[in-house]
């Protein structure tokens, strides 16, 4: 007897494709946010599957903080060319130059928060009414209550008290002029699901997810990649370590983990045995217990 039952990765895939197709249909000018991290790479892959053999019918949007890992940018440009996608890039540096955003000071300075300003400006400039993002509900408690279709007011703000109930798979994307939506196709995926799916589908990812030797700085127990964007404190020194990255964000706030994992299977084994969450490697979340909730309300992802 044939069992007509999908395994959980295929069910998550089907759900995400449904959400992406719905965003492409319900909104006039959707876009997909692309950071070069594994979640946005998986989301882009799902978008290709959703519309194949046609090309992805909306642009990818990268908010470039100027503090990217160079490997991320190389990967991005190659991928975009291969899949024939449209890419829009907006720069945090431009927001700073125009006086729209002010650079943080001190050794922990990061452009992570400034991204929100550039992002909201870009959505307005490009008249984007739905921005798809790779955020997952398992990442953080402020994200555990997110919808697939998350309503934002005309200031781009998230009001957790005023979200629409989401029933069955009926997605309500109706909005007033000036408002927009954030759409999260990977809502129900966990970190493990993402890695298993990358392996299942053989999706290319930037090489810094795999083990390599690198100059790092140990800051409060977090291994930051040493770069021109890092200001050393008196007690800190640069060391060479064998590391890889579990998440990829800004160089200034993404911590590396010491790891010999050089293949997807090894990464998956490592995550299965890991006893900390991946957000544990993000300095941006360590600022306070409600750091994510506060940023989300202001329009961050």
């Amino acid at each position: 007897m044939i069992l007509y039952h999908l395994n959980h990765l295929r069910e998550l895939e089907a759900e995400a494709i449904y959400v992406i197709r719905e965003a492409a249909s319900q909104f006039e000018r959707p876009a997909m946010l692309f950071s070069g991290g594994k979640d946005s790479i998986v989301m882009t892959h799902l978008a290709r599957k959703a519309f194949y053999p046609a090309r992805i019918p909306f642009p990818l949007l990268h908010i470039d903080t100027g503090h990217n890992f160079p490997e991320t940018l190389t990967f991005r440009d190659k991928m975009v060319e291969e899949i024939g996608a449209r890419l829009e890039v907006r720069y945090v540096q431009d927001s700073i130059d125009k006086g729209r955003a002010r650079e943080e000071k001190g050794p922990n300075a990061s452009r992570n928060v400034l991204q929100t300003i550039t992002l909201l400006d870009a959505l307005e400039e490009l008249k984007i009414d739905a921005a798809m993002g790779g955020a997952r509900r398992d990442e953080e408690k402020a994200r555990a209550k997110e919808r697939f279709f998350s309503h934002r007011d005309e200031f781009g703000q998230w009001d957790p008290k005023n979200q629409r109930p989401e029933l069955w798979m009926l997605l309500n994307g109706r909005k007033h002029i000036g408002e927009h939506f954030r759409v999260f196709p990977l809502s129900n995926w966990t970190e493990m699901d993402v890695w298993m799916y990358i392996q299942l589908e053989n999706i290319p990812i930037p090489e810094i997810y795999f083990t390599h030797e690198r100059d790092v700085v140990d800051r409060d127990g977090m291994l930051l990649a040493y770069s021109e964007y890092i200001t050393l404190k008196d007690t800190e020194k640069v060391e060479k370590k064998v590391v890889r990255f579990r998440t990829i964000g800004d160089m200034t706030c993404t911590g590396a983990v010491e790891s010999p994992a050089s293949s997807l299977s090894e990464i998956i084994d490592e995550i299965a045995a890991s006893r900390t969450t991946e957000r544990g490697t993000r300095q941006d979340d360590k600022r306070s217990e409600t750091a994510m909730e506060d940023r989300k309300k202001a329009g961050y992802f």
Binding site: H5, N7, H8, M192, M196, S265, I268, D269, A272
Partner: peptide, 13 residues
């Protein structure tokens, strides 16, 4: 650590 890879691929939701 008892997640075998094949096992994980065949999990139900």
């Amino acid at each position: 650590s008892d997640f075998s890879k094949d096992g994980y691929m065949n999990m139900e939701l």
